[in-house]
Amino acid sequence: MTRVLLVVVGVLLGAYGAWLLLSRQDTDGNIATGTWLVAGVLLHDFLLVPVVLVVMGLGSRLLPGAWSAPVAVGVVVLGSLTLVAVPVLGRFGARSDNPTLLDRPYVAGWLVLAALVAVVVVAVSLLRSRRGAQSGAAPEGE
């Protein structure tokens, strides 16, 4: 019953959001929104997924077993967040007549994010390696 209720609430909220989108924008705005949504799906399916599959295929052969899963998670997290950040990283929408738009160092923020993801991946991988060595068993995937 809870799932049905959650689905109904989700569908109603989605319909309300679609109504707001369609009723409060002009046709050009709706076309731009639709283009953005379709481009996100296409980028995910035809760019992010193949890159992750290739990286993980190589990683499973080259990385120790304890490192494979954390690296996979890191690639997915960083890849997804990078795709979401493309508009601000590319400064799309910046206007010279409004300097308050895109007024932050977004590339520096992305670099900090990438470093944090890398640190977490390395830390988790080292912990997994240490646990495997302490138990005397080979880590998963080896």
Rank of each mutant, 00 (worst) to 15 (best):
M1H: 14
T2A: 12
L6E: 10
V7R: 09
V7I: 15
V8N: 02
V11M: 12
L12C: 11
G14H: 05
A15M: 10
Y16L: 14
G17H: 07
A18C: 05
A18V: 13
W19Y: 15
W19D: 05
I31G: 00
A32V: 03
T33R: 09
T33A: 15
G34D: 01
G34Q: 02
W36N: 06
W36A: 12
V38N: 00
V38S: 04
V41D: 00
L42D: 01
H44F: 13
H44M: 02
L47A: 13
L48N: 02
V51N: 02
L53R: 15
M56D: 01
G57N: 03
L58H: 04
G59A: 01
R61V: 03
L62D: 00
L63Y: 03
G65N: 04
G65I: 02
W67C: 01
W67F: 09
V73E: 01
V73F: 11
V73N: 02
V73Q: 06
V73M: 08
T82F: 15
L83R: 07
P87N: 07
A94P: 00
R95C: 01
S96W: 11
N98R: 15
L102N: 10
P105H: 14
V107L: 15
A115W: 10
V119N: 04
V120F: 05
V121N: 01
V121R: 03
V122T: 08
V124R: 08
L127F: 07
S129T: 13
G136F: 06
A137W: 06
A138G: 03
A138P: 00
E142I: 02
